[in-house]
């Protein structure tokens, strides 16, 4: 579904992605973790073209990024992206947020889009917030609207860029619960997160990155109980200490 082959990227002189080779199968859930600045966010932002790669191949849903034949705008409709900062449209209600792209990009009839928008918002536990503006919602509620917004596009892939890092601790679990639900329905997912409980519960694989390179991959079980490299051991000891 997603395949990186020898991908390199630089920000100026900074080598942010170093020879990444990695593939994600359909219906697979992959958690990406690693210290800050290790290139995790950049990695998943490349998948929907929010960042462009300099070198190597990146094939998403059978289409090679950067090819003339690849229509990025169209491909993006198949890829949901959840941001750390939610990025809901502040001038739109929750229901308008989740129906905007289906109506204007997918060209679904308004009534139909609204019906499935309501359904999706109800599914993420916001059945009573259709007409609320983002400013009237808590962080956890906003992030759930953001997830519903992606799901309303019926994507094939969902990418999450540190979806709970901007949340107060008591709101993290309500977002993770929604993400677990999405994973259990068989969505192909790449999740940048340090929520190890989530990784253990639904991820098939954990990818550990450091300094722009994939240092280690393994099942959550292997990775957490028996990390193979010094760097991953050091990282785990830091995030699991408390």
């Amino acid at each position: 579904m997603i395949e990186f082959r020898g991908v390199n990227k630089w920000f100026g002189a900074l080598h942010v992605l170093k020879d990444i080779t990695l593939s994600v199968e359909p219906r697979e859930v992959v958690v990406v973790c690693g210290p800050s600045g290790s290139g995790k966010s950049t990695l998943i932002r490349c998948i929907n073209g929010l960042e462009t790669i300099k070198d190597g191949d990146l094939v998403v849903d059978g289409q090679r990024l950067g090819d003339r034949a690849t229509n990025m705008t169209e491909l993006r409709t198949e890829i949901g992206f959840v941001f750390q900062a939610f990025n809901l449209y502040p001038h739109k209600t929750a229901l308008e947020n989740v129906t905007l792209a289906p109506i204007h990009v997918r060209k679904i009839a308004r009534a139909e889009a609204e019906a499935s928008g309501r359904e999706m918002l109800a599914k993420v536990g916001l059945g009573d917030k259709f007409n609320a503006y983002p400013s009237e919602l808590s962080g956890g509620q906003q992030q759930r609207v953001a997830i519903a917004r992606c799901l309303c596009m019926r994507p094939k892939i969902m990418l999450f860029d540190e979806p709970t890092s901007a949340l107060d601790p008591e709101m993290i679990s309500e977002v993770l619960d929604v993400m677990v639900g999405v994973a259990e329905e068989g969505m192909t997912m790449m999740v940048v997160t340090h929520e190890m409980g989530f990784a253990r519960k639904v991820a098939q694989r954990v990818v550990f990155m450091d300094a722009g390179a994939v240092v280690e991959t393994g099942t959550p079980e292997e990775f957490f109980s028996d990390p193979k490299t010094d760097r991953s051991r050091a990282f785990l000891s830091k995030i699991l200490r408390h």
Partner: peptide, 14 residues
């Protein structure tokens, strides 16, 4: 904010 632009891009808007 740039995030608004990116949200639009990510949802496939022109």
């Amino acid at each position: 904010s740039r995030g608004q632009v990116e949200a639009g891009i990510a949802s496939g808007m022109t």
